[in-house]
């Protein structure tokens, strides 16, 4: 049986302005706000990897990564390689 995917939420605090969008709209209440209003990961296991937080963070401060995805997924690797190649060409 396919194992349930898990995800890691990386927050780059230097760029986070504590707007609260990620905390408010995460459908699984993965985050809570600390005293400064910045998100802290309260329950990583609940994350479904929808990337709503990553796409809506106005400050590019959130990165979601899949953990234990089979070989970090062959598809992801292809995308990565092609962009590196493209960058080289440019």
């Amino acid at each position: 049986m396919a194992k349930k995917k898990s995800y890691r939420q990386h927050i780059f605090y230097d760029w986070c302005k504590a707007c609260g969008l990620c905390v408010a709209f995460c459908p699984k209440q993965v985050y809570r706000r600390n005293e400064e209003g910045q998100p802290v990961v309260a329950d990583a296991a609940k994350c479904v990897g929808c990337r709503f937080c990553e796409l809506h963070c106005p400050d590019f401060a959130i990165t979601i990564s899949a953990v234990d995805a089979p070989s970090r997924s062959a598809a992801a690797h292809t995308a990565q390689t092609s962009i590196e190649e493209a960058a080289d060409e440019r």
């Binding site: 230097d14 760029w15 986070c16 302005k17 504590a18 707007c19 609260g20 969008l21 106005p58 400050d59 590019f60 401060a61």
Partner: peptide
């Protein structure tokens, strides 16, 4: 960075 826009601005 962070950029000049207000916290939460779209």
């Amino acid at each position: 960075f962070p950029h000049v826009w207000c916290p939460g601005c779209g």
